[in-house]
């Protein structure tokens, strides 16, 4: 009998003692982890895109709990997620302007003059290193889709040699804008439907030589805008999306057809 009892008692006793010790240790060494973190993580989309500016969803959740960070920074979840996070944190939700990526080039191969025929790897960075790409215009979309490759939401595609953003899918995480070697993708408020689809800061004469639809900085749009939302700076017009009322006068007046409506 004792042959069975002794090992049971010893090992069982060890188990109980260790259990009690661990229980006590978990009380003594308890680290306060905020219970709101897992709740916020549940609400967040979990895409880990980094669009909020943090390393991932969990980093953002931790930053939210430790304070000083606004709950409306997740571009994927948008207002709905911001509201839920605010509920968890017990703070008022703030409306965040819906943003979207805009490609500031419309120079497809028929409109933009070609400098040479690029025959290298099908990648924007490679093309950009070889004399700035095959387009005459140094600010033109290269059309090899490096932006397409980094988009986690399938919101960007290359059509007719120029990148096009699907506004409905775009979450404005900014990955494409970072990737583009020409830096012609900008994250802009979705409110303004009209975009100057050119970023050429060259003088009007040179832009006109390089591309049929380039902004030459003539300023006609700026003069005609009823809200004064357009300014010409460095030979290229820029629309202030917050002032724009989507009247469309600028697009109809532009002699170069460089202002386009995007949904």
């Amino acid at each position: 009998m004792s042959q069975i009892l002794i090992p049971i008692l010893i090992v069982g006793g060890m188990g109980i003692i260790f259990g009690v010790l661990l229980g006590a240790a978990s009380k003594i060494f308890a680290v306060k982890t905020d219970e709101r973190v897992p709740k916020i993580l549940e609400v967040l989309p979990g895409a880990n895109c980094g669009g909020c500016g943090f390393a991932g969803c969990s980093a953002y959740a931790n930053a939210l709990v430790s304070g000083g960070v606004k709950p409306n920074m997740c571009p994927v979840g948008g207002a709905a997620v911001a509201e839920k996070i605010s509920e968890i944190l017990g703070v008022e939700a703030e409306e965040k302007e819906k943003m979207v990526a805009r490609v500031l080039c419309n120079g497809n191969p028929e409109r933009a003059v070609q400098k040479y025929e690029y025959d290298g790897p099908r990648d924007c960075h490679s093309a950009a290193r070889l004399g700035g790409g095959e387009k005459m215009c140094p600010h033109g979309c290269l059309g090899f889709g490096s932006c397409v490759a980094v988009c986690k939401f399938g919101a960007i595609s290359v059509a007719d040699g120029v990148a096009v953003v699907d506004v409905n899918k775009c979450v404005a995480c900014g990955a494409c804008a970072l990737e583009c070697p020409k830096k012609i993708i900008k994250i802009l408020p979705a409110k303004s439907k009209y975009t100057i689809t050119c970023k050429s800061v060259e003088k009007g004469k040179i832009t006109r030589r390089d591309c049929k639809v380039g902004c030459i900085g003539c300023g006609i749009c700026a003069k005609n805008c009823p809200k004064g939302a357009i300014v010409v700076k460095d030979n290229v017009a820029v629309i202030d999306p917050m002032k724009c009322v989507n009247c469309g006068i600028c697009a109809s007046k532009c002699p170069q057809k460089a202002i386009n409506k995007v949904e």
């Binding site: 090992p7 010893i10 090992v11 060890m14 188990g15 260790f18 010790l21 661990l22 240790a25 978990s26 003594i28 060494f29 308890a30 680290v31």
Partner: peptide, 24 residues
């Protein structure tokens, strides 16, 4: 009973060390 006892000890030890490190 070596194997069982040692597994128990190691599991508890690792748990304890983890808690200790997290705090200290």
């Amino acid at each position: 009973m070596q194997t069982i006892a040692f597994i128990l000890v190691i599991a508890v030890l690792v748990q304890f060390v983890e808690m200790f490190l997290q705090k200290s």
